[in-house]
Simulated scan of single mutants.
Amino acid sequence: MGDYIGDLRKFVGTRPIIMCGANVILINSQNEILLHHRTDRDWWGLPGGAMELGESLEETARREVFEEVGLKCGELKLFNIYSGEKQYYKYPDGNEVYNVTATYLCRDYIGKISVDLKEGRDARFFSLDRIPSNLSYTIKGTIYEFLERSQKGNL
């Protein structure tokens, strides 16, 4: 698999681009969700990332979860798709993106959490009443929507 975004950056520099990707809300048997602590910022987020050429969104979600936290996803259920102004992100290196992100729910996974230290400091499950306050701003809305739908029993 290549590095599509890296190759694209050679042509456009740090200017804003539209970046498609996927992330996953992994839910354990205690109804806790897995959050991934990023290395580039002191933020917790969902495991996920950018789509590579030829991948489906589901393949992106599975690959990114495995690369970042070492878990293999089984069934993925589409939760929502996020795009627009709230999905703007400027990386510490100056690269700017407008994310279009498919978020999936997954209760069916195998493996043991193993964090890729190039991308994350930690990954662990949090109870829904103990979500850290330092969430990545591009996924805050996703987490809040998940919490609201969970409370209403709409999942």
Rank of each mutant, 00 (worst) to 15 (best):
G141R: 07
K140G: 04
L117M: 09
R124P: 02
K140W: 02
Y137W: 11
M51S: 11
E52R: 12
L34T: 05
T138E: 13
N31Y: 10
G70L: 03
K86Y: 07
Q151E: 12
G111W: 05
V24S: 12
D3S: 14
E64M: 14
N23C: 15
L128G: 02
E64C: 08
G6E: 13
L34G: 07
N134A: 07
R149C: 00
R130C: 04
D40T: 14
R107P: 01
G2D: 12
L53C: 10
L26D: 06
C106V: 02
K77L: 13
N28V: 05
Y137Q: 07
D93E: 10
C73L: 12
G153D: 08
L8Y: 09
F79N: 01
G21Q: 04
Y109V: 03
P132S: 09
I18N: 11
Q151M: 04
D7H: 14
Y104A: 08
E52V: 06
Y82S: 11
L53H: 13
N23L: 05
K10G: 04
K72M: 08
E64K: 15
R62W: 05
R62C: 08
G120K: 03
L78G: 05
A123E: 04
E52F: 07
I139R: 03
D122S: 03
R15G: 10
G111C: 06
L105N: 05
D108L: 06
L155R: 03
I131A: 02
R41G: 01
S150T: 09
I33N: 01
S114V: 01
T101G: 12
P132M: 05
E75R: 15
K90L: 13
K112M: 02
V69C: 13
E32D: 09
Q151G: 14
R38I: 01
I25C: 10
L128P: 00
D3T: 08
R62F: 04
K140Q: 09
K10S: 12
I131R: 00
M19K: 12
R41I: 10
R63T: 01
I139E: 03
A102Q: 04
N95Q: 14
A102H: 11
V97K: 11
I143S: 02
G111Y: 04
L128V: 01
G74T: 11
W43R: 10
S133G: 02
F126I: 00
P47R: 08
E32K: 07
Y98G: 10
P16W: 01
L117V: 10
L71Q: 10
S127Q: 09
E55H: 14
K118G: 01
V97L: 08
D93Y: 03
G111I: 03
C106S: 11
N134L: 04
P16H: 03
D129I: 00
I27H: 08
Y88M: 10
F126C: 09
D122I: 02
E52I: 04
K90I: 15
K152D: 00
G6M: 03
S56N: 08
Q30F: 10
L8T: 08
